[in-house]
């Protein structure tokens, strides 16, 4: 594989997974809900997208995938608000249930082939035939979707509803005092975020011309790792830069992964690496403050006392 096409694949996968990272930006960063149904919703998007494309509706497949994942987000949110189930548990339960649903959607099989199916990717490829962009058609499609997604998110987060969603993650009590129903904002937020997860899954399935039931496994950790990498690179708290940093994080994560593969790391190590990155990113600040800050001094003082 040439270096250019390698970089292109990296960029493509990074951009596609960045849509899931953007979804987590909405649910995890803004709404402060760790949506563990992400894996299932990603696969759901891939399955629905594949099935609808197979039925001969390549454009519709994208919207269908987003809508289906949105419904799954609604159920997760419904469980944690109206039925008062712990938000992590709600995500896990939905994720488990989606496994069966995804197989049912694919028609009782865990594998679908899109080799000869008309998808948005083949359509754009035909369209760009003979132009300078012929080679990069897949990256262009992904980039267009990512830009649209960022614009949608930035604009949405500026509306009253978007602000209410952010406030729900920040201080639910204040939201209630502002006569806004925090259940409603959680439901809208998760429907909105899951639409992007579904889109992400749909695009991955169509770009790699096939979907299997494992396509989304570990996606939540990979996306979380990307999100945290992005946050480390761009620390500025701006409503435009935050989503951009999420995309940047996703691409960098893929880049690091590709380099590691070139250094003969086994492909199956991806998920372990993403887990380690998440642990480092989440625990890092705490460890640093423990070693250098007041907490560290306290521990040292206690040790000194114990020694004395």
């Amino acid at each position: 594989m040439s270096l250019v096409s390698l970089l292109q694949t990296t960029l493509l996968l990074g951009l596609i997974s960045s849509l899931t990272v953007l979804a987590l930006y909405v649910s995890y960063t803004c709404l402060n809900v760790c949506d563990l149904s992400t894996d299932g919703a990603f696969t759901l998007g891939a399955c629905v997208g594949a099935v609808v494309a197979l039925a001969g509706h390549p454009i519709l497949s994208i919207f269908a995938a987003m809508a289906a994942a949105s419904v799954s987000g609604f159920i997760t949110a419904f469980l944690q608000t109206k039925l008062n189930i712990n938000s992590l548990l709600a995500g896990i339960v939905v994720n488990t249930g989606l496994f069966s649903i995804n197989i049912a959607i694919m028609g009782n099989t865990s594998l679908l082939n899109l080799n000869k199916t008309k998808t948005i990717f083949t359509m754009v490829k035909d369209l760009l035939k003979g132009t300078a962009f012929e080679e990069a058609y897949a990256v262009i499609i992904a980039l267009v979707f990512v830009v649209i997604a960022i614009i949608c998110i930035v604009l949405f987060m500026k509306t009253r509803l978007g602000l209410a969603i952010r406030a729900t993650g920040d201080n639910p009590r204040m939201v209630q005092s502002s006569s806004i129903n925090p259940h409603m904002t959680t439901i809208v937020g998760l429907c909105f975020s899951n639409a992007f997860t579904g889109l992400s899954g749909c695009l991955l399935a169509q770009s790699q011309k096939g979907v299997n039931i494992d396509i989304g496994v570990g996606m939540v950790t990979v996306a979380l790792a990307s999100l945290l990498i992005g946050n480390t690179i761009i620390r500025k708290n701006s409503s435009i830069l935050k989503p951009v940093s999420a995309v940047l994080g996703a691409v960098i994560f893929r880049l690091v992964y590709t380099i590691a593969l070139r250094l003969h790391m086994q492909a199956y190590m991806l998920r372990l690496i993403s887990s380690v990155i998440v642990v480092i990113a989440l625990a890092g600040p705490y460890i640093v403050s423990t070693l250098t800050g007041s907490a560290g001094k306290k521990i040292k003082n206690r040790r000194r006392k114990e020694d004395a």
């Binding site: 009253r160 602000l163 209410a164 952010r166 406030a167 920040d170 201080n171 009590r173 204040m174 939201v175 005092s177 502002s178 806004i180 708290n237």
Partner: peptide, 19 residues
């Protein structure tokens, strides 16, 4: 801390309460 959303700006907080 109860009455406001700490990570949002003064303007955003007011917009939620008074928009």
């Amino acid at each position: 801390r109860s009455g406001t959303a700490p990570n949002m700006t003064i303007e955003e907080n007011l917009f939620l309460a008074g928009g």
